[in-house]
Design a protein around this nucleic acid. Structure first.
Lengths: 208, 208, 208, 208
DNA sequence: TACTAAGCGAGACGGTACGTCAGGTCTTTCG
DNA sequence: CGAAAGACCTGACGTACCGTCTCGCTTAGTA
């Protein structure tokens, strides 16, 4: 984006620039602490100390501890979610579900995620940010697969994409947050065995 | 522990008996506060004040604020969940889903529920209690319907009941906790339109 | 003293009584810290730690760090100010002045006093308390001596007592707070040598 | 700005501020803030903002907020203290005392003064500066009057000038800082009525 | 009728973390 | 090259709840 010639006038704001060092130190410290000690040991003071940073600096840039956790979470989560088009919609979905489960089961990430969702329940600002910055992207990726499948005739033409996404992702979050049942490797297949027929076009050979 | 006939004539322990008045006042106050102010304003101090009760009395009977919330939640939730057998499995499911949505959308209950789940994320004891005292009952009710349907031949013989429950309930909790999308009256039908075919026996007339 | 019938069995206020242990620990810690480290090292946190007390306990009973300092100051200052009637007004005054100087020069007390006066300059509540609880008592003691002297005919009949007190005490505070000049043992005599004639009745032998 | 040879030989100080504009802006802002809002609203940040100046610029030239206040104070105080020789020592003293009281009662100046003295109590550097740059000058002026009076035979030959100054100024600072009693127009006369006889030569007609 | 045991409201206690603020120092960019 | 802008660290502030702990009182069953 920022092409080399684009900064001809590029008059940066005056004053000491924000310290990138501090920013990353905070995010790293947050992730490390979440991994090692869990959410309980995550006070702003502790993050600040561990990051070698002042508490005020944290509050300058994040309104809330949860906001820090979210950025930390996204920082090491966002980039790693490739969704290749395998040709088979069912396989595409299987891979997506599998990657979500992998994410949930990763020590640090799972805890962060759970913490963020828990916090969201009494922090509307965080809730919105979480939805816009994490959930929306996930749904969009799933939507692409589903729409593509529908266009290809693999999925039923009257498929309600949003409901379908609820049906595919909902069970995962339900296990993570509510029932506490484990999400194993084979769960994607079990789930799709039960659900895919409902999504597939009637004449699909693998519909059932 | 509790010998069966050991205290038939109920020789009460000595000392002043537990005040029923205090107990109900606490549960009512908790529900009222959740209704009116939400989870944020729910400190033990505030509950105690509102209930006209000492903080110590609360801690004498509940280990945790969340435990109080759970009892308060169950106190006005438990009794109202009848699941009649309508003859049609799909209709039975529709009614169950509908009643869950009604519960979620009720001001006080929805918030309590959300609060309990949020708290459960960092309180394993609460999590277990919540699952045993609320979730398990729900799943059991749903299981009955599904097993009955399978036995009747309305549902596919290889139906995995647990996965099916995940698929039916998961989306509801997902909307409540994660996506924040509203759960409207017609959602049960929308959901079943998408999912029921996957559950139904292949020769069922209403499978699709 | 307290009400005529003194209220039967003296029913105390409900609730856990204030901890005398905590109260004294706080005052002692405050005085010790003032003595040893001076006003600079006197944060509420430090007092709390040293006293083995919670910060909240301090704030429960004192609105301000300075208020604590005042109580600590009065706690070990108040009781020790006897002003015997020596028969000679000049001698009475000399002793009073001497005792004030001794107070000023005592490590802990002097520093407390200075701190209190400094704080008073931007804390009207403290200022009033300081005047009522410390200054007023001093002035009253001095007033007694002066009025007695005037009645005895040792002091001029048209003596303005308030101005006289200003003239006797003012120089001491002036040295303490403003000029920084030392207040030595002989200062009371030097001061009275200069001032007493102005106060004395014209025919007094020691007027000049 | 200032022409190179414009003032005498003008040996340029090494640390001289480039911007005279900044320096005066700071002093003016400080005085204005003291006048309008009092000492409480006087943070270095606020001064900097109001003066349109960087905080760093203030710290470059003054070690301490109090040092700024002192310069600001002197900047509009120093020049206005004329002490004419009226021929009568008592009248000279009366005028001096009156001018001090006027200074104390002036909104901005009084507050500055009080602030400086309060700050001096825990800042020895400031204390010394204050004494050297303000107090010493005052005492010197008073000393001149007293010495002149003694030489003229108006004052007692064994007058201890330093003690006398304490006795004349002390009460004023005492009222300002300690007792809080008001310093009215007639106070100089009241004070001198009580004190002057002690200073005057025995045969002076106005000694009593 | 006493005595004993426990529950009760009130409210102070030691703690932990919060989010804010002022003081000083530093690192940029601009004039 | 000095000065503005402003980010930074430090450290104290005062507040809010937490869960525990006395108190003195009340309410039973037991002696």
């Amino acid at each position: 984006m920022a092409g080399p010639a684009s900064r001809k006038s590029e008059s940066r704001a005056p004053g000491r620039p924000r310290s990138e060092r501090a920013r990353t130190a905070i995010l790293i410290a947050t992730n490390e602490l979440l991994d090692s000690r869990g959410l309980a040991a995550l006070s702003v003071d502790v993050i600040a100390t561990r990051a070698g940073v002042s508490k005020a600096t944290i509050y300058r840039w994040w309104p809330t501890k949860a906001a820090v956790v979210m950025d930390a979470f996204l920082a090491h989560t966002s980039p790693r979610m490739p969704f290749p088009d395998t040709g088979s919609t069912r396989e595409d979905l299987r891979r997506q579900i599998k990657s979500v489960i992998r994410l949930f089961n990763q020590a640090g990430t799972g805890r962060s995620l759970v913490a963020l969702i828990a916090e969201s329940q009494h922090d509307p600002v965080l809730a919105q940010a979480f939805r816009e910055r994490f959930i929306a992207a996930r749904r969009e990726a799933a939507r692409e697969v589903l729409v593509r499948g529908r266009e290809r005739g693999e999925l039923r033409p009257d498929l309600d994409v949003d409901i379908a996404i609820d049906a595919l992702y909902g069970p995962l979050y339900y296990r993570l947050l509510v029932s506490g049942d484990p999400l194993r490797q084979r769960y994607p297949d079990q789930l799709l065995d039960q659900l895919y027929p409902a999504l597939a076009a009637v004449d699909q050979p693998d519909a059932r």
